[in-house]
Design a protein around this nucleic acid. Structure first.
Lengths: 344, 344
DNA sequence: ATTTAGCACTCGTTTATCAAGAGTGCTAAC
DNA sequence: GTTAGCACTCTTGATAAACGAGTGCTAAAT
C-alpha cells in the first residue's frame, strides 16, 4: 500500500506532467504547493514509486514520467472531479438551449463542442435507432423499376433506401404493402420489426400481394440499413498539436484506424454503461499505446443508445475531460429524452 | 520559346522529380532514356530553364526542382494522357458495375476508390439536388409539437427535416397541406420550389389552412436544408505518407482547412466544367502552396451536379491522376444518369 | 558554333567531440 | 527519518571536420 506522502507525490508528478509533457524532477516537486520535503527525500520516494511500477524514467538520469499503472492509479484513486469553468458550462448549456429538433444535429454538435473545449479528438457513436418505434412507412415509386422506401420513427429519425422493384409488383401492390405495414407495425420497435413482419404480416401480405416474397426482400433491405450506427468526428486535427504526436508515423497509424468505422466502434464500444477510461495498451491497439480514450454512454429514455468519447495522449487532462464528458453525456441524454417523450 | 531539347529536359526532370521527390542533377538526366548529351550540356540548358523560371534550386549547389511555372507548362503542354493500368480500369469498372441504387453511395465509393488508387486525398462534392424534381412530399406528425417533413425527388434523393408545429396547425391541416403541395408541386425542380409555393400555392393554402403563414416557415426550413451540398472525403491519411508533408505544422494547416466544408468548397468549386488543375499558389490558400488540386465536374443528365477532386503535393503524378479523374467523372456521370433517366 | 571534359567551389548532411545542464543515486551527516 | 553534498549519467546544443552531390565556368575537342 502506498503512503499518503507517496500518493501526494504521485499526484503532483502526474499533474505536472500533464501540463508540461516533460519528465518531472525531484526539485520541481519539492517546490510544489503543500510539499515540505527536500528534493533528496522526494528522490527516495520517487525511486520507490518507480520500483512499484507507478513511474518510469525515459533514461537513467532523467526525471520521472507516469507509467500506465501510474495513470490508472491516478484515475481510480487520486483524481478529483474537476469543476467545469464558467465558460465551459456556458458553452455546453448553449448547445442544449437551442431547441434543435434533430437528434443527429445535437449529436454532431456535441462532438464539435467536445473537441473545441479540449485539445483532443472527439468521437460520437449513434444514436442507435434500434429501440425507437416505427411511426410510419412510406413507399414511393420512382419509375417502373425503382422505389424509395422510407421509415420514420417516433424519435423523428428517418431512414430511406432505394430498392429495385420486382417486375411482379405494380403500384397498387405497393400501396397495399405500405398500408398493411402501417396498419400492423406502427409502434413496433425497430429491432422487433423483422420478426413481427414474418410472424404477423406475412400471411396478410400473401393474401393481398401477388409475389409476397419479393416484397419481403424489399423491407429487409431497408431495415438492414438502419442497423448501422453512425459515427461523427470532431477535431481530429487537434491531435497534431500534441507533442507526443510530433512523429508522423505514429499519427498515421492512429488516423488510419480512426478512418475505419468498424475499428472506431471497437475502440469506443463500452462493455458497461457510464464512464469508461482506457489508458494506453488497455485499448488493445498498437497504434493507441500512447493514447487514452475516455468515453461515456448517453441514453434515450433511460436506455443507452450511443457513446460519446475522446481520444488524446495518455498524458491527458483526465479531470477536465472526465468532467466535460460526464456533463455532456448527461446533457445529451436529457436533450434527446426531452425532445421526444411525454408528448413534449 | 523553348527548344525541343529544353522541353525534353524539362519533362525528364519533372518526371524524375515526381518519382523521387529529390532535386534532380544533370548527371541523372543525361542518363535517362533518349538523352544523348553530357551532363555539362544538360547543366547549361538547366541554367537557362532556371533563368526562364521553369526550374528552381533549393540551394546554390543542389539539383533542380520544378517551379510552379514548370509544372504548369508540363501540365499544359508536355503531359501525355496516361493510360490506366488494367487493375485501375478493373477497379473503376467494378464500382459502376454493381447496380447501386443510391446516388450517395456511388459518390462515396468514388471518393474511396480515387484515394485508394492514388496516394493522395480525395474529395467529392455533391451531387446537388437542385435540378432534380419533386416527386413527393410527406408530413408525418410525431406528437403535438413536432412533425417530420420529407421530400423525395425523382432521383431517389430523400430530404427530411423535423419542424416544430405551430399551435395553430392541427393534424387535418397537415394532411391538407401535404395534399396541396403534392398536387401542385410534383415535377417541379427544387430550385423553383420556393418561388412556386409563393406564387401558386399560397392562395390555395390560405383558403384551406387557418394559419397559412406558419405553414410556410415550415416548408422553407425543409427546403433550406436540401441546398447544402454534401462533402465526402477519402484517404486524407494518405497525405501523411508524402515526404513533403513530413512537417506536422504544414499538415495541420492543411487538415484544418479540409475540416471545414465551406473552405473545401472554395478550393474545389470549378469556375468551369470539365477538368481543372490548380497548382500551388493557384489555390489561393497559404496552407496549400505546396499542394495541387485536380478536380472535374460530374453530371446528371448533362448538367453538372458535383465535383470530384484530389489533393496532393505539387509534385503530383499528374498524368495518372488526370487519367483517373477523367475516367471516374465520366463513369460517375453515366452511372447517375443511367440510374434515373429514360425510365430505366 | 556546339559540345564536353575538367576542376574549383558551394552548400547541405553526417559524424565526432565537447561543454553545459538537468537530474539521479548514494553516502554521510543532521 | 530527513537532507546536504557530490560524483555520475545522459540529453541537448553548439562547433568543427570530413564528405559528397552537384554546380558554374573555362578551355579543349568536335
Amino acid at each position: 500500500m502506498l503512503t499518503d506522502r507517496q500518493l501526494f507525490i504521485l499526484q503532483a508528478i502526474i499533474d505536472n506532467y500533464i501540463q508540461s509533457a516533460e519528465p518531472i524532477g525531484s526539485r520541481s516537486i519539492s517546490k510544489s504547493d503543500g510539499m515540505s520535503y527536500s528534493p533528496a527525500t522526494i528522490r527516495n520516494e520517487m525511486a520507490d514509486l518507480e520500483e512499484l511500477g507507478f513511474l518510469e524514467k525515459p533514461h537513467s538520469s532523467s526525471g520521472r514520467i507516469p507509467s500506465e499503472k501510474g495513470y490508472r492509479h491516478y484515475v481510480d484513486h487520486l483524481l478529483l472531479p474537476h469543476r467545469l469553468s464558467k465558460k465551459e458550462i456556458q458553452n455546453v448549456r448553449s448547445l442544449f438551449a437551442e431547441k434543435i429538433l434533430e437528434a443527429e444535429q445535437v449529436v454532431k454538435q456535441s462532438a464539435t463542442i467536445l473537441s473545441d473545449l479540449t485539445s483532443y479528438a472527439s468521437i460520437v457513436l449513434g444514436p442507435e435507432v434500434f429501440e425507437s418505434k416505427l411511426k410510419h412507412v412510406q413507399i414511393i415509386p420512382l419509375n417502373a423499376q425503382a422505389a424509395v422506401a422510407i421509415l420514420v420513427t417516433d424519435t423523428g429519425h428517418v431512414e430511406n433506401h432505394t430498392v429495385t422493384l420486382p417486375e411482379s409488383l405494380n403500384s397498387t401492390d405497393l400501396e397495399k404493402i405500405a398500408n398493411i405495414l402501417n396498419d400492423r407495425l406502427e409502434g413496433v420497435p425497430l429491432y422487433k420489426l423483422q420478426e413481427k413482419i414474418y410472424k404477423e404480416v406475412a400471411g396478410l401480405l400473401k393474401q393481398h400481394v401477388n409475389s409476397f416474397h419479393d416484397a419481403f426482400r424489399f423491407t429487409e433491405e431497408t431495415l438492414q440499413k438502419s442497423k448501422q450506427e453512425k459515427v461523427f468526428y470532431g477535431g481530429k486535427t487537434n491531435l497534431l498539436s500534441q507533442p507526443e504526436f510530433k512523429d508522423i508515423e505514429k499519427v498515421k497509424m492512429i488516423f488510419e484506424i480512426l478512418e475505419q468505422d468498424h475499428t472506431v466502434h471497437e475502440l469506443l464500444k463500452p462493455e458497461q454503461d457510464g464512464l469508461v477510461i482506457r489508458i494506453g495498451q488497455e485499448n488493445n491497439y498498437e497504434a493507441f499505446e500512447d493514447c487514452s480514450i475516455i468515453s461515456a454512454t448517453y441514453s434515450f429514455d433511460g436506455k443507452p443508445v450511443g457513446t460519446i468519447g475522446i481520444v488524446g495522449p495518455t498524458r491527458m487532462e483526465y479531470p477536465r475531460v472526465i468532467g466535460l464528458i460526464q456533463h455532456l453525456s448527461k446533457g445529451l441524454s436529457d436533450a434527446l429524452t426531452n425532445l421526444y417523450t411525454s408528448g413534449n
